[in-house]
Nucleic acid binder design. Structure first.
Length: 202
DNA sequence: CCATAGATTGACT
DNA sequence: GTCAATCTATGGA
């Protein structure tokens, strides 16, 4: 008999996210993002993330020039979501890290389906490894929108649980940015097919 | 006020 | 390979 999946006692808590953002980003690979709603339970194993450092430390970060109406959740306590609209079209999910006022966050860029495949496929319009192999796709699969901005991951319908660690972790430059191009802040599991198709600058 | 760039994706030549 | 979709933030007239 296996135990009930995703018990509250195993959920990642605030201390997991209250560390330097590069460390949290790397540690998030292999972790399982679980979301429950009226449609059911879905579980996604993270295989690609990027770290964005705090205010004034990272020219690529939305928080680089300080708080705005869009990014103000980045300045709140760790373990919550920062959700923004990218190119006016796609939603992207970030996890706030470090400490209140630091504005460091991890962008969720790619994940593998563990549970709820039919729900995720319905939201995305198709099945297969392209369900969540990109930040906008991952958000669409979850049904996330701006209403998720600021949502706590420490309790409630959305959160992280331990999962199978990657056998190997690869580190590269981040994708789609023009400033901060030389920082090696993208982390992914090279064994996964669900890494985003976009290529880093270097 | 207007122009432009941006942590993307899917459709199309 | 190119390009449009269309919201936020910033910088200049």
């Amino acid at each position: 008999m296996s135990a009930a999946p995703y018990p509250a006692s195993a959920r990642l808590g605030e201390t997991f996210f209250a560390h330097p953002v590069e460390d949290v980003a790397e540690a998030l690979l292999g972790k399982v993002l679980v979301h429950r709603d009226r449609e059911g339970l879905v579980a996604l194993r993270l295989v690609e993330v990027e770290a964005y450092r705090g205010e004034g430390q990272d020219e690529a970060s939305h928080a680089h020039r300080g708080p705005t109406p869009r990014n103000h959740q980045m300045f709140e306590t760790p373990g919550r979501l920062y959700v923004y609209l990218c190119y006016g079209v796609h939603h992207c999910l970030n996890v706030v890290c470090e400490a209140e006022g630091r504005a460091a966050a991890v962008l969720l860029r790619g994940a593998e389906v563990l549970s709820g495949g039919s729900i995720l496929a319905r939201r995305r319009g198709h099945a297969g490894y392209g369900i969540a192999n990109g930040p906008g796709k991952l958000a669409q699969a979850l049904g996330a929108d701006l209403g998720w901005d600021g949502r706590s991951l420490l309790a409630g319908e959305t959160g992280f649980w331990p999962g199978p660690s990657p056998g190997e972790i690869r580190q590269t430059t981040r994708i789609g940015i023009s400033r901060g191009r030389s920082d090696l802040l993208r982390f992914f599991d090279p064994a996964s097919r669900c890494v985003s198709r976009a290529r880093p600058v270097l």
